[in-house]
Design a protein around this nucleic acid. Structure first.
Lengths: 134, 134
DNA sequence: ATGGGCCTTCCAGTATTGGGAAGGTCAAGA
DNA sequence: TCTTGACCTTCCCAATACTGGAAGGCCCAT
């Protein structure tokens, strides 16, 4: 199939599929007219990539996972290691965002949000960060 | 003070400070030799930027917040609106990450992580996403 | 004069696309 | 057969928010 159909079937934009070829995640064949030709196997790989990306894996993680996926002699431990590393990064990001959220929501709640210029949010951003006593 | 001292005092890399000048977030004066010269006011603005960035505000949000910071006649409602918008984006990101985390941790827990090739993680990435019954 | 540590500008790269221009190909209809 | 429109191609630029490095100027101390 051509790239348009591959895009429709995987949900990936054609642009993204071309990019994945450029960085050698996939290597579709070419028809005589120069059009990319995607086999069912290519389609499976694209779907795999779409799902891995949706779970937030980086392109390089995806490259590793795809290689493991295609290696019948892989050890599941190798896959698990990649996934656990990603899980830790996700947890770190969640923790960072929660910390930001907490600080920011305190400032937002303290702000009257009216016509007056006095604003705890701006005060909080311009002051030294509050430190826990002790 | 020169850029090195401004960097040391704000915790921002000199490169980042130059970038902030390039995109016109700050406009330090220049000494006769061409070196940037940072006033205390510039330093306050840099610290403000550092804190806003640490809370995850985008550069464009920072530009807006800085303008409000410098506008004595601002309405706190305008500041609050920017902050609330950011808070919503943070909540959305947290929700997305939690959703990823949940799916991924299920796969990781199901994976033996040994020398055998059988791997629920790869299966999960290659299969249609599970759908709730109903 | 020399050396080291500042400072300057400019160029290029990161990761992952998205947008769009300029042009080739194909299938269907008049 | 010609045209139209939907595909497809490559190439270049934009975005975010920096980060690295090269080449060279400035300043101070020895």
């Amino acid at each position: 199939m051509n790239i348009g159909e591959a895009a429709a079937r995987t949900g990936l934009p054609a642009k993204t599929i071309r990019y994945y070829e450029e960085i050698r995640l996939i290597r579709p064949h070419r028809a005589a007219n120069g059009y990319r030709f995607f086999s069912d196997r290519d389609l499976h790989k694209l779907s795999f990539l779409a799902r891995a990306r949706a779970l937030g894996f980086s392109i390089e993680d995806c490259r590793m996972l795809l290689a493991l996926y295609e290696d019948e002699t892989r050890a599941s431990a190798d896959v698990k290691r990649v996934a656990e590393g990603h899980l830790r990064r996700i947890d770190q990001k969640i923790a960072d965002l929660k910390s930001m959220r907490e600080t920011l929501s305190e400032l937002v709640e303290a702000c009257a949000g009216d016509h007056r210029p006095d604003c705890p949010i701006l005060k909080g951003l311009s002051a030294e960060p509050a430190r826990m006593p002790g």
